[in-house]
């Protein structure tokens, strides 16, 4: 298997962390993963972007040209990266911040992650909700692996925060399953 993902949004939305999270879930399941953030001019002006390649085999190029999956956090991000999708691309949109799209993709999921995060009284978990949606719909990795990695990544933090993230993940996962 080989999965190439582009994740885009704005600073503070947890775009990079989401990428690292998915990569670590893949690594936990003994896949190879390569995660690459944008660090250039794209970063200025509030853009946040990362790409990752996940594979059973050695990863040659870590640069993603055409995404198998695009995860977009807001309108600007979606508009910027639409050209790196194909009809086969799975598109996951944060519909709280994306009002319209003209993407011609077979599989799209619109999830109001920001609103769902607000309802959880924790706007910072929108990325984990998106992660849940991704894992739920892509079905490449198990929910259990994701839970382990969440706990591992939050390791030193308070149990309450872990609970909140696990619950956010589940909401995203369940949403995707609907």
């Amino acid at each position: 298997m080989k999965e190439q993902i582009i994740i885009a949004g704005s600073g503070g939305q947890g775009v990079l962390t989401l990428g690292i999270f998915i990569a670590r879930v893949a690594v936990y399941e003994n896949k190879n993963a390569a995660w690459l953030p944008s660090y250039g001019a794209e970063k200025r002006g509030g853009f946040s972007f990362c790409s990752l390649v996940i594979s059973d085999e050695e990863i040659f190029s870590p640069v993603v040209e055409t995404a198998d999956t695009l995860i977009a956090f807001d309108q600007r991000a979606l508009d910027s990266y639409v050209q790196r999708t194909s009809k086969k691309t799975l598109v996951i949109e944060n519909s709280s911040l994306i009002l319209h799209d003209n993407i011609n993709a077979d599989k799209k999921i619109l999830i109001p992650a920001s609103d769902m995060a607000k309802n959880l009284d924790a706007s910072k978990v929108a990325n984990i909700i998106m992660a849940g949606a991704y894992i739920g719909i892509r079905k490449l990795f198990s929910q259990e692996s994701a839970r382990v990695v969440i706990q591992d990544m939050l390791g030193s933090k308070a149990g309450k925060l872990i609970e909140k993230n696990l619950s956010a993940f589940e909401q995203g996962f369940d949403f995707a399953g609907k």
């Binding site: 690292i20 990569a23 190879n32 993963a33 390569a34 995660w35 690459l36 660090y39 990863i59 870590p62």
Partner: peptide, 10 residues
């Protein structure tokens, strides 16, 4: 190079 500096791998 910049890619190797920024890239994460296991």
């Amino acid at each position: 190079d910049g890619l190797l500096g920024q890239l994460m791998e296991n």
